[in-house]
Write a protein that binds this DNA or RNA. Structure first.
Lengths: 248, 248
DNA sequence: CCAAAAGTGTTAGACCTACACCCATGA
DNA sequence: TCATGGGTGTAGGTCTAACACTTTTGG
């Protein structure tokens, strides 16, 4: 059984090509139906889909998510959605906010509990999602046509990410395991939407003692090869708990 | 009509007697019924009450809130609950998190969208609430017996308040319109759970230029009378938007 | 040898911490 | 005149902001 009036949606952030991106999909109603309703009625969702042509259109995109099953914990189900769609466990996931205006979804009343996730796109194969007609990355400031209030949800998730990143060392989840300082700096630049001074940035990061020199370097680059770093899990956990000042 | 599976609850914080307190109530099932169900079924709520003796007990307390009506915006309804119970509009109110574990409420599946509110108890008359058998302030670390997962909700709201207060000038909502620097310092001390250095605290606050000297003083105190301050709404709004560093 | 990005140090000012005494008031 | 809490300044250390040139690599 599912709750007709509650959905769980994930704003999945990824950092590709030096841009901050969001993963959106077009769910396939028939596959969705199969996934959701082995045991029960599908009428409400069908109605929503019938009433909102955008849901069937190839021009409109939505957040990855579904209605909440009655026998699933809320947070646990958000995690499950991510596992199914990205193929990965242990993704950084955080509840953003619950959206519940009366008219946010036409022709029906649905509350959406929104989450954001940070993933490193290198590690994921999005072809995996068994429920999607299409799945695609979009630059955060070049969203396509979206259904319902997805723009607002993404905007609020981004706002939350921006706040979070200033006080907790979560940006790293968006990077590959080994990364250069320039990548890290660019990541913070796109999240915060401003340019940072390279020398000051490096000093600040290195004072945190969060980074571990892997003794490796980039290869096949047409310029001086940058050192690759990973980060220290112990210090990461400490900073995550205590907070840090990353107002840069 | 109400949603049987969604409730909206407020963790109302107040600062009295130099303590941080939470307002809890014992709802009166019959009055609640009247308030909620002019038009509709009450069966589910009745069932919940029947199945959970704590709800009728005089020993157990709950968060102020009710089920969400189908014709109310989520955030708007939280505001309305506050208006009804505190008699005041324009209370500082913020969504905390949605709680949705399967077993958080025995014998039924209810998601709770939790909010926290900051009020200045001087301004409120809690006798007003038309739905309560009893309403009472409890010190944050001396909660009574509570129903369901109220302890966890309060703990998370407090955690959020603690974070928030470090980066936004929201503490002022807990104080009377005119307050002394010592009151302000004590407020931060109880929220953050640590002692602060008076001289450094005052310097920091005064550098923000948020405070306005009212040119008034305490009266009838058996010691040097403290100056009374209020705060500057323009600077408040600016700091609220831009954030501030209040890690003290 | 050229283009492209990596990498590095210093200085001036702001901010933070730690710390101890006198002041004003009512009882 | 006493008890109580209000109110203040300084020095040393740390953090921040601004700023330009040399190094390494592949093509």
């Amino acid at each position: 059984m599912i709750f007709k009036n509650i959905s769980v949606d994930c704003v999945i952030f990824g950092f590709n090509d030096n841009k901050l991106n969001v993963l959106l999909w077009q769910a396939d109603p028939e596959l969705l139906q199969e996934f959701l309703t082995k045991e029960e009625e599908y009428e409400q969702i069908k109605m929503i889909i019938e009433e909102n042509p955008a849901l069937k259109s190839d021009d409109f995109w939505g957040l990855i998510g579904t209605h909440l099953p009655t026998n699933e914990d809320l947070n646990g189900y958000a995690k499950k959605i991510l596992q199914i769609t990205t193929g990965l466990e242990n993704v950084y996931l955080k509840q953003v906010e619950t959206f519940g205006d009366i008219n946010r979804v036409p022709f029906s009343r649905i509350l959406t509990v929104a989450y954001y996730a940070l993933i490193n796109p290198d590690n994921h194969d999005f072809k995996l999602s068994p429920l999607a007609k299409a799945v695609k990355w979009f630059e955060i400031d070049k969203l396509p046509n979206v259904i319902f209030d997805v723009k607002e949800i993404v905007a609020n998730a981004l706002k939350k990410l921006r706040e979070e990143v200033q006080y907790h060392p979560i940006g790293f989840h968006l990077l590959p395991e080994k990364f250069t300082l320039t990548q890290l700096q660019t990541l913070y630049e796109v999240i915060l939407g401003k340019n940072l001074d390279t020398r000051n940035f490096r000093k600040k990061i290195q004072n945190m003692e969060l980074l571990v020199d892997t003794n490796e370097k980039q290869t096949n680059v047409a310029h001086r090869a940058a050192k690759l770093y990973s980060f220290d899990v112990n210090i990461y956990n400490k900073l995550k708990k205590e907070g840090l000042n990353f107002r840069i």
